[in-house]
Design a protein around this nucleic acid. Structure first.
Length: 336
DNA sequence: CGATTAATAT
DNA sequence: CATATTAATC
């Protein structure tokens, strides 16, 4: 189908094997011709362009049209498909095995590789570049989805930490009873445990080897269910102190482990391997569904342990330090 | 029949 | 080559 109505293009196309040549915009007569063509069972030997004004198609006169309604619907459909001039590419099934081949190829081809390279590495007969291309599209989509999921979790985590930072603040400003009660105020921050694979169909990450390899590539799948949480624990009823930027900034400024598919693709980008390890480590903590208190210790300097004794005293000292010089502060810290 | 997957169009 | 769209399967 072409907007090009000059005769040379037409015959060119026809000589190269086109059975039909439509000129846009289509006319009703074109459609009529098409219908006739489609409902005829016989092969089209020759189709000549219409000479008489209509710029549509012409179907050979000698074609006998077979009535459609001799068969049931299904057969009818079959017939049409089979006799149709252009045959649809055979639909392939991406079995685990194929998928594995694909993944291997993706890895071998290196990040940034396109369908062509991947197809070459796969080297599976019957699988065309187009097949690979299509699958690659899907694969990338799944990565993207994963990525945004991770970003989401990251956000959540950061806000959790923020929440805690309020409470640490409270600790420092402490009215002693608050200090002592503090733990009770902590929101129930159960980071949901990882529910393993549960590979949803569209996640495209089956296969065992695959998973392993992917880790090496920094594409670890971190599946933390998000359904629960964050609605119950949200200690919003509490008098919200104004948000302390600190933890938020720390979290958001921290380079994400891997930001996006495009980053993965970038051959220059080498750091993600390392950072992804960090990330996984970080997450394995989460996965243990450990209380946040412990996690905090992993990521931030440990909070000085509070000496047994008079809380008020400590508080007073800490207050004094606001005007203290470094040395004073230093020695105070040591005394802790 | 809606979702998902793969082919094809842009 | 990437992405959008459509068709075929599940």
């Amino acid at each position: 189908m072409s907007a090009d109505e000059n005769q040379t293009s037409k015959s060119k196309a026809l000589s190269k094997g086109a059975k039909l040549y439509f000129i846009k915009p289509l006319l009703l007569s074109d459609l009529k011709g098409l219908w006739k063509f489609a409902s005829c069972n016989t092969k089209v030997s020759t189709v000549s362009t219409d000479q008489n004004g209509s710029k549509g198609i012409t179907v050979n006169k000698d074609q006998e049209c077979k009535p459609l309604n001799n068969n049931n619907n299904k057969e009818k459909k079959q017939e049409l498909v089979e006799s149709s001039v252009v045959q649809r590419r055979k639909r392939i099934r991406w079995t685990d095995h194929l998928h594995m081949k694909f993944m291997e190829a993706v890895i071998l081809a290196g990040s940034g590789a396109g369908p062509k390279k991947i197809h070459e590495y796969m080297n599976v007969s019957g699988v065309t570049k187009e097949h690979v291309s299509s699958y690659l599209q899907k694969y990338r989509q799944s990565l993207k989805a994963q990525d945004s999921e991770i970003q989401y979790q990251r956000k959540m985590l950061s806000s959790e930490l923020n929440l805690r930072s309020y409470q640490l603040k409270d600790l420092f400003h402490c009215k002693s009873e608050q200090f002592l009660d503090a733990p009770a105020h902590l929101p129930s921050t159960k980071i949901p445990t990882v529910h393993e694979p549960a590979l949803s169909q569209n996640q495209l990450l089956p296969g065992t080897l695959v998973q392993g390899e992917m880790n090496g590539n920094g594409v670890e799948s971190v599946e933390i269910s998000q359904e629960e949480s964050y609605t119950n624990g949200r200690v919003s009823e509490e008098d919200q102190l104004d948000p302390s930027e600190d933890f938020e900034t720390i979290m958001t400024n921290t380079e994400p482990c891997f930001t996006s598919w495009s980053q993965l693709l970038d051959p220059e980008e080498t750091s993600y391997e390392v950072s992804s390890k960090d990330y996984t480590a970080e997450n394995s903590e989460l996965n243990c569904s450990m209380p946040m208190e412990n996690d905090m210790c992993q990521q931030f300097p440990a909070f000085p342990s509070v000496p047994s004794g008079n809380v008020d005293e400590i508080f007073n000292i800490s207050k004094e330090t606001e005007n203290a010089c470094d040395e004073d502060l230093d020695s105070w810290l040591k005394s802790l």
